[in-house]
């Protein structure tokens, strides 16, 4: 049995980030890259299912991304994923969530997992769309914002708790195979061991071409659901800033708080 975890490399802006010359995205040179926070929890959940289940469960981490996204797959391998798969093609440049969902759907058809886990959202764009779009393309059951999960391979179902607004939770029974989007806080992700990191460095990552996944490049391009007109830094109302060294800032802040709250200065 197999669990597929979809992971995304996200960009974090530097303090002095700049937009790309075409004004449609940020310049990648001013960014750190990282494994999407939500995906770390999704991977951990898959690893725990494997450990609880004993025996025959394979955890596969998959990403749609250019060469440098391999680093995120290695993090997953270092933590214990059995395999990493990365899909890329020039035609996926600047792809949106719908295009990614099409690629992932083809990958799921090849891998035939019993469960697909994604993050609720990417920390980069907060789209929160790829997992549910993937489920729809596969016509699979789905549940979003899962904060507790009990998977029963034998029964072919899972009991999940979805986290709703205001701390309310919903209990849902769902047939599997299914796509679940995993919320942070569902578990505490492990750190990779030094040994895991060393071993992962030497392992190869599978990189099937679009054609091998029976994906039509033109169809993928047509799946783009929105076009970026422009990206810009919004004019922000700046608050009054308290300047100075930490000691001076603290003194000014303390005085301000006492002013607002009343009482002795």
């Amino acid at each position: 049995m197999r669990i597929l975890v979809c992971v995304k490399q996200v960009l974090n802006l530097d303090d002095e980030f700049e937009l790309r010359a075409d004004g449609l995205d940020v310049d990648r040179d001013y960014c750190d890259r990282d494994l999407n926070e939500w995906d770390d929890y999704a991977l951990e959940e898959a690893l725990r299912i494997r450990e609880r289940g004993g025996g025959d469960i394979e955890v596969v981490a998959a990403t749609v991304g250019a060469e440098d996204a391999t680093a995120e797959l290695r993090k997953c391998l270092a933590k214990g994923a059995d395999r990493g798969v990365r899909v890329w093609d020039e035609r996926l440049q600047d792809c949106d969530g719908m295009m990614i969902a099409h690629v992932l759907a083809a990958l799921v058809r090849r891998e035939q997992p019993a469960l697909v886990l994604t993050g609720v959202q990417g920390a980069d764009h907060g789209q929160a769309q790829t997992g549910v779009a993937l489920a729809a393309l596969l016509a699979w059951p789905r549940a979003a914002v899962v904060r507790a999960l009990e998977f029963s391979a034998d029964a072919g179902e899972a009991l999940v708790r979805r986290e709703l607004e205001g701390g309310l939770e919903e209990c849902v029974r769902i047939r599997c195979p299914a796509v679940l989007t995993i919320q942070v806080g569902i578990n505490t992700p492990r750190y990779a061991s030094l040994r895991g990191i060393t071993q992962a460095a030497g392992r190869s990552v599978d990189t099937p071409a679009l054609a091998e996944l029976a994906i039509d490049g033109a169809a993928i391009a047509a799946a783009r659901a929105a076009r970026v007109r422009r990206m810009y830094v919004p004019p922000r109302p700046r608050p009054r800033m308290i300047e100075g060294r930490a000691g001076e800032q603290a003194a000014a802040l303390a005085a301000l708080i006492r002013d607002i709250r009343g009482g002795p200065r």
């Binding site: 959202q121 769309q129 489920a135 659901a225």
Partner: peptide, 16 residues
């Protein structure tokens, strides 16, 4: 977010 992306994906609609 549990169903809107499904409508967008299966109908090939514009989506954001």
């Amino acid at each position: 977010i549990s169903y809107a992306p499904a409508i967008g994906a299966t109908g090939s609609h514009g989506y954001a």
